[in-house]
Structures are given as structure tokens and as C-alpha cells.
Amino acid sequence: MPKVNGASLLRGLIGTAGLLAVLEAAGRLGAWDTERLPLVSTVLLRAGELLTDPEFLVSARSSLTTWALALLVTIAIAVPAGLLLGMVKPAEMAVRPLIEFLRPIPSVALIPLVILLYSETTHMRITVAVYAALWPVLINTIYGVRDVDPLAKETLRSFGFGPGSVAYRVVLPGAAPFIATGIRLAASVAIVLVVTSELIAGGIEGVGVYITIAQSGNRLDLMIGATILVGLFGILVNALLVAGENRLFRWHRARAGAAT
């Protein structure tokens, strides 16, 4: 992606405004039936209104909670597992084939099964999201542990520190930038899987459920408006995590030449 500076930001704004204007004009000039597919301005207005619509906010809060819990569970499972597999080479060798077999299974395919297992919809959604979000964190953590300078580990060991201390003092901080990247990817994946499971499995609350209800009323304006908000939320989360990574791991960027 191009570097962000004043000029490129301005060009981006011009491009975005131009596209919106063209779409709006096309809609007003009758390029399509606006009864079916609403105008750009209508959709944007609706997206803004949704932010203060209590019914939508209840759903949004529910989705947010599910997403945050899913991300926490993912980190709680994948980071320790990744540290272990990264530090104990035979364990990783043994488990690698299982990972290779499990990873290609689309998480969404588990939804019909998981629905049957859980009576609580939130648990079911979290399970589906965790299954998909696990992999980027796990793989990045293993990779990050491998990347830790062996000299740093041996130095600590030579001073008589046990494996636990070595893991906590050298391996974890050394692998942290990779783990952070994994978590950022997982955060995006989890958003998609939370709303997808809401969409497929239904329930009472959640943005996916809200969109399903809007669909039954043929309210494309509300459906697109809600989708736009989910997209913007994804961009916001990603931007915050990137900014956090840049602040926390400046040392790493300097060393690795900023590879993402």
C-alpha cells in the first residue's frame, strides 16, 4: 500500500468523494431502481442513524462481547500452545501433521455441528470464531519463538535460569512482535466468523441476526448500512493494533526492516 502522507491522503479523499458522487448521481438519474437498491446517500445516512438506534446497539454490543471473548480465548489457547510447540521441537514435529489436517477445514462448516452441541448461542459463536482465529496466532507464535536469538537463551541458561524463566524472560518478549501480528490477523478473522455464525445459526441478538431480520423486511438500506459499520469497525481495530505494534515493537521494526 502506498505511504500515507498529506498528498496521498488528499488524493484518497478526492477518489472516495468522486466515487460516491458518481454513484449518487447515477442512482438519482435512474441507473437502477432506487426502490430496490437505495441511493448512496440513503445508505450512509442509515449507517449514521444505526449508531444511535437502540435496537441495533443491543445487537452490536452482543457481537462485540462475543468477539472480545473469542479473541481472549484464542490468545489464551494459542499463545501458550505456540510457545510450547516453538520451544520443544519434537512436540512441534509430532503435532504438525494434525495442524496441517485441521487447518483447511473451513470453520463455517463446523457451525451446523456446533449448533447441536451448545444450547447457549454465545458459546457456539465463540467456538466457531476461535477455531478460525486460532491458526494465525499459533503459527505466528511458533515462528516467533523460532526467531528468538539462541544466544540470548543460552546466556540466560548459563546463569542457571530454568526453562520457565527462559521462556518468560527471553522467548516471550522476543516472540512478542510475531504474536502481535498473529493477534491482529486473528482479530479480523474473528469479526468475520462472529457475524457469519450469527447469520447462519440465527439467535436473538447480534449484528448478523439484525441483518437477517432486515433482510426479511427487504430493507437493503439497513442491511448495507450495518455491513458498512462492521467494515469500518474492522478497519478501526486493525489500525489500532497496527499503531500499538508500532509503538511497542519499535526495536523489532528497526531490526527486521519492518516486515509485516
Binding site: 457469519t196 455491513t227 458498512i228 467494515g231
Partner: peptide, 8 residues
Amino acid sequence: ALPPPLLV
């Protein structure tokens, strides 16, 4: 950034 499933 739009989740493709929401487009279904």
C-alpha cells in the same frame, strides 16, 4: 474490510 459472508 467488509466480511464477505455479510454480502450473501
